[in-house]
Each structure stands twice: as structure tokens, then as C-alpha cells.
Design a protein around this nucleic acid. Structure first.
Length: 645
RNA sequence: GAGCCCGUAGCCCAGCGGAUAAGGCGUCGGCCUCCGAAGCCGGAGAGCGUGGGUUCGAAUCCCACCGGGCUCGCCA
């Protein structure tokens, strides 16, 4: 595996050991930590051993560093060492090191994708949006992050599988199906995305029902003279009136038809409950309707996500787990443990006592006082709750042969996810509890507050993609009018979608995001287009290079070249680290800084008409190396890097 | 009330035990006879919510507090 930095580090370590022996005979070196000096001019690698040796040698770190540094000999990749502020800074031999860095990077199309020693089978479950409304920018954060995690882990050498849980058992799906049935089960026309079509039906049904309910409750409150209640209801009324007005604009036919039809039902909620129960009982007619509605939506998801180059290996229907009695089996098994009790008619799982008996808090690094509330498995009316089905789903996931399972799910479900793992232990499957990871992330909010599918208040991913791609097309057309339109559109797609992905991936998952159009559509520094542009510049030079003279890397003397070399050398370990700690943001930050350094180099130094042929060759190798790294880095994020833009 | 997450320049955001706290947006001033100005160069702007503690060394670890978000048995 090509990792020039590791090679340099090994050689530094050898020199360091020899120098320490010379300076302080008999001293055993502690495991030495290497870092990079703040300024590459100070050297390629810095050792902090002097700080660690200070105690045993009873000397100041700065003095130790000086004593060791003066014994370091020039050898191989190592040119020299100097002591600065207690650090021992190693300078690489420019000619040898640059040759190693740039040539290995340029020659290896997989450069940077360091493989793990023990590949695993890992499932990532992500997106799993309810199949009743459009994909919002919030789901997009989930999907883009999940897809990136899967990418990173796959490129790291693991065998990946990506699943989408189709949540078709909830009241929401029943509600949408009821509305859809009232309309005569229409199909969307070919121009309308399935999830947008169903989303309008869902929101219209919900808003119509809520307005009727509020009206009814207001009447009661008025009769009773309950003033605070009347005020509260008025507020609700306003909310739904706004939503209704919006729907009358965006989907007037659907909304007005549903409003009229629903008004004829004295108790719509009962109709929905009936439908829900029928579906749970696998009633053929109901099943046909629900599954069709869900499929319309899922087909839309597949198309939308496909445009983002995000794909799934399997769509797992929650209802299948119920109909195949997987949830029942889990319930029976749990009932046989000592951890389930009946309380006011409901069946309750005692998480905390499982956690204590198996010392799970300690095992999973939770605070000893971390409270784990009990979990209701079965309602007092005998119906089951989602978490029970989720337990069955986890068992299903591991049943597909996975070593690890990663669930990309909102942070708000942290407790439920923990309870789930505890249940797996209680079921006698501790390895599942241990190897299931909840990758939580904070939600995307709008400047005006939380998004709401029920109220139709959200930013749809499709809109963001459309606007972003459109903007990109304008830019591309402005800059490269000579390209044929099809190619310009293709580039605009890569740039527009890249910008959206980059914007979402660059913010750490546990930070809240307030959606900002300007940020999502940023095409300047610290954006995907900035990185892509740098890549296109690399490609352009390489295309223009008529020939590649033999490189003389010792002629690369400029600090800007050194900075680029250092960044290129870092890539493999940046990638490995990002994949291991599941932090896509590390990669966006890295790409931005590499592109930044490359652009400085680009504007200050000539490549094609450099002073000597040897220098031309060396700089071409540098450009080629940067090209590979930018390309591979983008690929990890699921971003394409065009050669022209 | 309890638990988890977040709190870094006007705004956004990186760094999470080590060398002068990194970028971006915005702002001010420069750069296209030269490989693409989606670019480059330079200026101003924070000492990392507050107060303690651990350490040779803390934005990073520990404790307390403050502010915001989320969650806490019959939603998913």
C-alpha cells in the first residue's frame, strides 16, 4: 500500500533511535508521536519525544531536542533535523521525497485508499424516509452522509451493504392511503415525481382532517366557555389555515377534492385506524392499496437518489417483519426473560435492569448515572410499537451475515437506539448489541423553524438540486460556451449536486444546520466547485502538456511546492482516519486545503514553461498527483470531478 | 427534575492534550500582454460561554454553573 508519509516516518524513527542512543546511551524511546510542524518550511515531520523524555532525563525538553537533533544523520529520505521549541523537526530530502510522493500518487489511481487489516461485512441503513412525502433537505443530510459513510468504509476495504427501511406500518401511511383511496387511487402522470404526488395527497388529507377537528373542538370549547383552550385552538387553526392556503396554490385539485370528500365523514380518524388495523392483519385489499401507494413514493425516491448517485441494495418493508411474525418472535423471547412486566395493561421492558446485570453502561462507555427509562413494547390495547419491530429488524440485519450495522438516524432517537441495543443483549445476542452503531446527526432546520411534512413546510431536495444545477449551468455556459450543450449539462449536474453534497458533509453530524440557500449554492472557496475547479485546472495543464520531460525533483525549491507535497503525502492517512472515525467533514476540510495550496502554486509558478525541462517534468508530476488526490477525495464524498467546467 | 448534543471573530465553521487558534462568508485594498479570475495576493477582525481544577503544556481532559437544541412507558 502506497503511503509515502509512513515511509518517511519510519526512516525518521530509525534516525531518531540512532540519534537518541548517541545522545543518551541506554535510553529507551517511548512510543514516539509524530505531528506536522505548523509551517512546512519548518520540516515535514516533528517528533515530540523530548517532552516525553523530560521527566526521566530530568532535563528541559528544549535541551533534549537540541542534543538529539545534532546527532541525526542525513540518510535516505531524511535530510536533516533541527530542534525548535522542544520539537525535533525532520526535513525530508527534497529530491528523494518529492519523487516518492508525487510519483506514487500519480501512478496509483487508488492512491490514498489504505485498506484495513481485517475487512468486515458492514451494513449501513440510511435515508429510510417515510414513504408519504418528498425527500427534504433534512433527509438529504441523512442520505448523503449515509452514502458517504458506506463509500468510506468500502474504499477502506470492507464489504458494504446499504439498506433502506420502508416504514409502511405507521398511522401516517394509513392516513395517506385513505386520502388516496378517496380520490380513486390515481397514479401520477409521468412528469410528476411519485413522492411529490403522494406528498400532496398526504398533506391535503392531514390538513383537511385537522381543520375539521379544530373546528369541532373549538365548538365544544366555546360551549364550555374555556377561554385558554379557545385561544390555543385559534393558534392551531391559523397554522393549518396557512398550510391549506399553500396547498390550494401548489395542489388545488387534490386539496379541494379531498377537503370536500373528507367533510362527509363524521369520524375520519376511525376510518384511518380501521385501515391501519386491516393492513397489520394483512388484509389483501388493504395490502394492495398501501403497497401500491408506498411503491409510487419509493420509485420517486429511487429516481431522486439515483440522480445523486445514491443507491440501495435492499428496501426492507417493516410490514414484512410483522407478517412473518418476526416481531412476535422477539416479543415471545423477551417475555421469557425476567425483564418484561405488565403495567396498566401494557407490556414494558425494563432496560435499566438489563444494563445493570450485564454491566452495559461500563461496556459501552456510558456514565454510570445514565438513566435508561423503561420501554413500552405493547400498548394496553394489545397493539405493538415500532421499537419492537425495530428489534426484529436488527436481528434481520445481522442475519444477512453482517459483522457490523450502522444506523444513520436522527440524534433525537438516541435513547430508542440505546434501548434497542439493550434489548438485543437481553435476547441473548450481545454481539449484536455491541456491533450495532447509531450514527446520530442533528436535524436540518429552516430559518423559520422546524420542517414539517404534515404541514407541507419544508425545503424539498429536488428543488435544491434543480436550483443548484441551474445555477451551475449558467456558470458553465458563461465560462465554456464552446462545449456542446449535453456536455455542459453533464458538468452542471456534477457541479450543482457536488455543491449540495459538500455543503451538507462539511458540517459535523452532531451540529445543527440551519438551511441556507446561499450556503448550499456556494460555488466559491470551500465548496465542491472550488475543489472541482482546481481539479479541472490540473487536467487542463496535463492535456496541454505536449510531452513529459524526465522530472528532476530536486529542482522543486519553492515553499508552495513543499506545501503541496506535504498535503499530497497526507492524503492516505487523512482518508483512513476519516473512515475510521466516520467523519466526512475531515475530507471536505482536507480537500479545501489541498485545493487552496494548489491554487497558490498555480498562480505563482509556471508549469509548462518552467525554467528547465527537469522542472517542467517535476511540476507535471506534482499536478498529476494533485489531480489524482482531488479526484479520489471527491469520490469518497460521492462527488464527481469533471475535467472541464 | 434527569440524560445526551452544541456554545470558537459581525455571521458560518475546523481544530478535541502540544509550537504564533485553521478556513469560509461579509468587509477594506490590490492582481487577467503569462497553463481557466468558480482564481490569486494583502489588511482589519476571536484567545475559544463563565468560574474553578488536572498537566511541563488545555479551545481540547475533569468539576460546577450559564445559554440553546433534543430526549425521558403506550409516536416513529
Amino acid at each position: 500500500m502506497s503511503n509515502p508519509l509512513a515511509k518517511l516516518r519510519e526512516e525518521c524513527q530509525r534516525q531518531l533511535e540512532a540519534a537518541t542512543e548517541a545522545a543518551y546511551p541506554g535510553t529507551t524511546l517511548p512510543e514516539s508521536k509524530y505531528s506536522q510542524p505548523p509551517d512546512p518550511k519548518m520540516g515535514e515531520l516533528a517528533s515530540a519525544v523530548s517532552f516525553q523524555l523530560a521527566k526521566t532525563l530530568r532535563q528541559k525538553p528544549a535541551d533534549i531536542a537540541v542534543n538529539i537533533a545534532k546527532h541525526v544523520k542525513k540518510h535516505g529520505l531524511v535530510a536533516s533535523a533541527e530542534a525548535v521549541n522542544g520539537y525535533i523537526n525532520f526535513h525530508a530530502d527534497e529530491g528523494n521525497y518529492y519523487k516518492l510522493v508525487f510519483e506514487t500518487a500519480a501512478a496509483d489511481l487508488e492512491y490514498g485508499y489504505l485498506k484495513v487489516d481485517k475487512p468486515q461485512k458492514i451494513m449501513v441503513e440510511h435515508t429510510s424516509a417515510n414513504p408519504i412525502h418528498p425527500i427534504t433537505i433534512g433527509h438529504a443530510r441523512n442520505a448523503i452522509t449515509g452514502a458517504c459513510l458506506a463509500n468510506m468504509l468500502r474504499l477502506r476495504g470492507n464489504q458494504m451493504r446499504v439498506d433502506f427501511l420502508v416504514n409502511d406500518m405507521g398511522r401516517q401511511v394509513a392516513l395517506a392511503t385513505w386520502g388516496w383511496t378517496l380520490l380513486g387511487k390515481p397514479e401520477p402522470d409521468s412528469a410528476t415525481r411519485g413522492e411529490i404526488f403522494i406528498g400532496n395527497i398526504y398533506a391535503s388529507t392531514n390538513v383537511s382532517m385537522e381543520l375539521l377537528r379544530v373546528a369541532k373542538e373549538t365548538k365544544v370549547a366555546e360551549e364550555k366557555g374555556d377561554v385558554p383552550m379557545i385561544a390555543e385552538l385559534q393558534e392551531e387553526q391559523e397554522k393549518f389555515d396557512n398550510a391549506a392556503a399553500e396547498l390550494e396554490k401548489t395542489a388545488p385539485k387534490i386539496y379541494n377534492a379531498l377537503k370536500a370528500k373528507i367533510a362527509a365523514y363524521p369520524d375520519p380518524a376511525a376510518e384511518i385506524a380501521k385501515l391501519n388495523t386491516a393492513y397489520e392483519n394483512n388484509d389483501p385489499e388493504t395490502k394492495k392499496a398501501v403497497r401500491r401507494l408506498v411503491k409510487i413514493c419509493i420509485d420517486g425516491f429511487v429516481q431522486t437518489m439515483g440522480e445523486l448517485n445514491i443507491r440501495y441494495d435492499s428496501f426492507d418493508y417493516e410490514s414484512d417483519l410483522v407478517w412473518e411474525h418476526k416481531a412476535d418472535e422477539v416479543l415471545d423471547a423477551l417475555k421469557k426473560t425476567d425483564f418484561v412486566e405488565r403495567d396498566q395493561g401494557a407490556l414494558i421492558f425494563n432496560c435499566d435492569s438489563v444494563a445493570n446485570i450485564y454491566a452495559l453502561k461500563q461496556r459501552w462507555g456510558l456514565a454510570p448515572n445514565h438513566p435508561i427509562p423503561r420501554l413500552v413494547l405493547v400498548r394496553s390495547d394489545g397493539t405493538t410499537l415500532y421499537t419492537l419491530r425495530d428489534m426484529a429488524y436488527s436481528i434481520y440485519k445481522f442475519g444477512t451475515g453482517m459483522d457490523r450495522v450502522i444506523n444513520v438516524i436522527g440524534q433525537e432517537q438516541a435513547l430508542a437506539q440505546l434501548q434497542l441495543r439493550i434489548a438485543l443483549v437481553a435476547l441473548g445476542k450481545p454481539e449484536m448489541g455491541d456491533n450495532q452503531l447509531h450514527f446520530g446527526y442533528e436535524f436540518v432546520k429552516l430559518p423559520e423553524g422546524k420542517m414539517s411534512g404534515r404541514l407541507g413546510r419544508f425545503v424539498a431536495l429536488n428543488d435544491v438540486m434543480d436550483r443548484s444545477t441551474e445555477l451551475a449551468l449558467e456558470e458553465v455556459t458563461k465560462r465554456t460556451p464552446d462545449l456542446p450543450e449535453a456536455q455542459r449539462r453533464d458538468i452542471a449536474r456534477m457541479v450543482g449536486i457536488g455543491a449540495v453534497k459538500y455543503a451538507l458533509l462539511s458540517v459535523d453530524a452532531n451540529k445543527q444546520v440551519i438551511f441556507d440557500w446561499a450556503k448550499a449554492l456556494n460555488f466559491e472557496t470551500n465548496s465542491a466547485p472550488f475543489v472541482q475547479y482546481s481539479h479541472a485546472r490540473c487536467c487542463n495543464i496535463l492535456i496541454r502538456a505536449k510531452e513529459r520531460p524526465a522530472p528532476d525533483f530536486s529542482q522543486l525549491k519553492d515553499p508552495k511546492e513543499r506545501e503541496v507535497a506535504a498535503a499530497v503525502a497526507n492524503w492516505p492517512e487523512v482518508f483512513a482516519e476519516a473512515a475510521d472515525v466516520l467523519k466526512p467533514g475531515t475530507i471536505t476540510a482536507y480537500l479545501n486545503s489541498l485545493a487552496d495550496k494548489y491554487n497558490s502554486f498555480y498562480s505563482a509558478l509556471r508549469v509548462l514553461n518552467a525554467e528547465t525541462p527537469g522542472l517542467v517534468g517535476a511540476r507535471l508530476a506534482l499536478v498529476d498527483a494533485v489531480r489524482v488526490v482531488l479526484h479520489n477525495g471527491c469520490a469518497v464524498l460521492g462527488i464527481e470531478a469533471p475535467e472541464r467546467m
